[in-house]
């Protein structure tokens, strides 16, 4: 059973990594989005492996079913042919910055995983939706609210980006 779990874990990891590589590297925006969808499905699989079925299904319902469809809508409203401005390779400075970002996050997470002892090795227990809801409104209220702040920041960022572009023209 444990070996099975390891094989499945490897499989999902491959999907996530492959999907994200396509999402970052594809020349056409729509292909990049398909890569993103693969990544999100892989993450949903990881949740399934953690016995968090509700999270897995919500991941698919919200991210694949709604967010990706909206991204597609945005792509369709722009002229996003394969030879567009996104298709050109990025300048060196941008690549370096991207590498720094990846290394800093990956470094911290990797360091944490390698130095801290495992919290648990048991088979995960499924948490009922009722408990989940009570937890989000009770003891984990702060984390719940912080997530909404993240969403607000990303929305404000999107508006800001669009604004600067428009003023620049």
């Amino acid at each position: 059973m444990e070996n099975m779990a390891k094989i499945v874990f490897g499989f999902y990891t491959l999907i996530i990594l492959g999907g994200s590589l396509v999402a970052v590297g594809a020349k056409s925006l729509v292909r990049a989005m398909v890569g993103l969808i693969a990544t999100l499905l892989g993450v949903a699989g990881m949740y399934m492996l953690l016995n968090a079925q509700f999270m897995a299904l919500m991941q698919i319902l919200i991210y694949v079913g709604a967010v990706c469809v909206l991204i597609f809508f945005a792509i369709m409203l722009t002229r996003a042919d394969a030879g567009g401005e996104e298709a050109a390779s990025a300048p060196l400075r941008q690549n370096l910055l991207a590498l720094t970002a990846v290394l800093s996050v990956g470094g911290i997470l990797g360091w944490l995983v390698l130095t801290r002892p495992l919290a648990t090795t048991g088979v995960p227990v499924e948490v009922s939706i009722e408990k989940l809801g009570l937890g989000l409104l009770g003891p984990y209220g702060l984390a719940f609210e912080l997530i909404s702040v993240v969403l607000l920041v990303s929305m404000a960022g999107a508006v800001l980006l669009a604004w600067e572009r428009r003023n620049g023209k």
């Binding site: 398909v34 299904l57 319902l61 694949v64």
Partner: peptide, 25 residues
């Protein structure tokens, strides 16, 4: 499964994506 309804709702969203990809590609 105890989340059968959610499973159906989640995976029926993929049908939209196929319409989109078909039209786009």
């Amino acid at each position: 499964v105890n989340l059968g309804l959610l499973l159906i709702l989640a995976f029926s969203g993929l049908a939209v994506l196929s319409v989109l990809l078909a039209g786009w590609a």
